[in-house]
Design a protein around this nucleic acid. Structure first.
Length: 483
RNA sequence: GGUCCCGUCGACUAGUGGUUAGGUCACCAGCCUUUCACGCUGGUAACACGGGUUCGAAUCCCGUCGGGAUCACCA
């Protein structure tokens, strides 16, 4: 059997990280089995249609490196891949169900349904569609039904759930799941606007597109029995089901916008590296062994299997993601890091520096950041004079006798022609010995005057990169203002 | 509330009857050191609870509790 899986988002906005993980697992599963990955857009809800949402979805997906074998853009033998373009199909299959007495027409108004629910609630019963007390093709005669339909008045088609028995199905991740039929509602299949509901459309399409495995979020688990019943009503073979654990907020509720960023776009914007992000997401709910954290996509494909997917939800905590981003950042070639840094500098209107200079800055700071965009923040002084000086550092290091010491020191370095880390280190060390000082004191004093900050890269390396002229300028300037 | 799913350190997880319950992030301490990081070493920290089954349970069964999802003419 050839493996065919699909990612089936509805285009209602941006790609959610949970959606990305679902797509990723589908992708890994497909690639692992040399199968096909299909993108199907579930746009059967006209009221929630969002312009450009599909493009956004595809952009985020392709940023993450998830490509599809079939879909609305690349096409395929099982199209169209937009549900809104498959409308006649659903109607046809709904009619099949009516013929087989597995579904029925219903003519109730919204208000009538609400009244029914209120009545049921008052009687302490489940507010399910109360088939026999309502207006539908089960309760009114055939002629009236025909008349209603021919008159063009709105109606829906509902699935006729068996009254007794259980729906039992197997989930690859959870094992056997069983639900009593009496707890399942007569699901609307075709809405009064003629569009199918998700339930009908997804079953029909999965069948027609020959989907072998339905891999989707756990939020679909409660409605899976309806889908199972649908397959049975059509007498179709069922795909295998795998319901993925949810991605959670810190408070363990389903990951949502209210508690922080959830759009993949936001994470791209924040500067996360694609490989780091994918690596991290992949390990949220699945682990090959747990003695390793960093995996290339190739390895993920090789190792992935649904059986090892966890059952419990996973809190989406970005702390480890940040660490992982740093790991990937440090593996990147310097040239690429330079380009990234350059973009960040331009974005901030920092003075433009040549590539060689940026390379040196990268080398100084790459071990100190999780994101490239942190460099302009923590190392602004590499690009322009410090605008302020750390007060605490000043109080701690700038003593009564500091001006004299620095003046003396200034003379020493003024006389050196070679302004490299090694020579600066030697000179400073010697200077300290001669003046009975500790290297530490001078270094921190220099840091204060040249960078204004208490933390940074090695001071002599920093001075080497900034260069003699500017270093001396900054020291003199500081002396002028602090004598 | 009904139904379904789930329950190992703060977080991500390994574990499938016998382990001092392991790893990673975070946190703490020490080392390194011109500061901050990196790195290295060490540390705090978990099997929700109660019954069984068994010579022996994190692992199997039942119950309790807790958490979540879902109950639309949304997906």
């Amino acid at each position: 059997m050839t493996i065919r899986v699909r990612f089936a988002p509805s285009p209602t906005g941006f790609l959610h990280v949970g959606g990305l993980r679902t797509a990723l697992y589908n992708y890994l599963f497909a690639k692992h089995h040399q199968g096909k990955l299909i993108l199907r857009i579930e746009d059967t809800d006209r009221s929630r249609f969002v312009e450009n949402a599909t493009d956004n979805l595809i952009n985020s997906l392709s940023w993450a490196g998830i490509s599809f074998d079939e879909g609305p853009i690349q096409g395929g033998d099982f199209g169209p891949y937009l549900q809104s373009e498959r409308l006649p199909l659903y109607k046809k299959f709904a009619d099949v169900l009516i013929q087989k007495d597995e579904a029925y027409y219903a003519f109730d108004s919204e208000q009538e349904i609400e009244e029914m629910r209120n009545r049921l609630s008052a009687e302490k019963k489940d507010p399910k569609y109360d088939r026999m007390s309502m207006k539908n093709s089960l309760t009114i005669n055939d002629n009236s039904v025909k008349e209603w339909i021919n008159s063009g008045k709105p109606y829906v088609i509902r699935l006729k759930i068996p009254e007794t028995g259980n729906v039992v199905f197997n989930d690859i991740i959870r094992g056997e799941v069983s639900v009593p039929c009496k707890d399942i509602d007569d699901q609307v299949l075709i809405k009064s606007d003629g569009f199918p509901t998700y339930h009908l459309a997804n079953v029909v399409d999965d069948h027609l597109m020959q989907i072998s495995h339905v891999i989707r979020g756990e939020e679909w688990l409660p409605s899976t029995p309806k889908h199972v019943l649908l397959y049975k009503a059509f007498e179709w073979d069922m795909p295998a089901f795998a319901h993925l654990p949810l991605l959670l907020n810190k408070d363990k509720t389903k990951l949502s916008k209210r508690q922080g960023s959830v759009a993949v776009e936001d994470f791209i914007e924040k500067g996360y590296l694609k490989d780091a992000f994918v690596n991290f997401i992949a390990l949220l709910g699945w682990n090959p062994t747990s003695d390793r954290e960093i995996y290339e996509i190739k390895e993920l494909i090789e190792l992935f299997n649904l059986e090892k997917v966890n059952k419990g939800g996973a809190v989406f905590d970005t702390q480890k993601l940040d660490w992982m981003n740093a790991q990937y950042l440090r593996k990147l070639p310097v040239g690429q890091l330079c380009e990234m840094l350059e973009n960040e500098l331009i974005k901030r209107n920092f003075p433009v520096k040549e590539k060689e200079y940026l390379e040196k800055v990268i080398k100084l700071f790459i071990e100190r950041v999780n994101f490239i965009n942190e460099i302009p923040e923590i190392a602004d002084y590499m690009f322009r004079p410090p605008e302020e000086f750390d007060e605490n550092l000043k109080i701690k290091e700038w003593k009564q006798d500091s001006p004299q010491i620095i003046k003396l020191y200034l003379e020493t370095i003024n006389n050196t022609s070679e302004f490299s880390h090694d020579t600066l280190y030697q000179i400073t060390k010697q200077f300290c010995d001669e003046n009975n000082l500790k290297l530490k004191n001078i270094a921190q004093l220099l840091r204060l005057m040249i960078t204004g900050k208490s933390a940074g890269a090695g001071m002599f390396e920093t001075m080497e990169v900034i260069g003699k002229k500017i270093v001396i300028e900054r020291i003199e300037n500081f002396l002028k203002n602090h004598s």
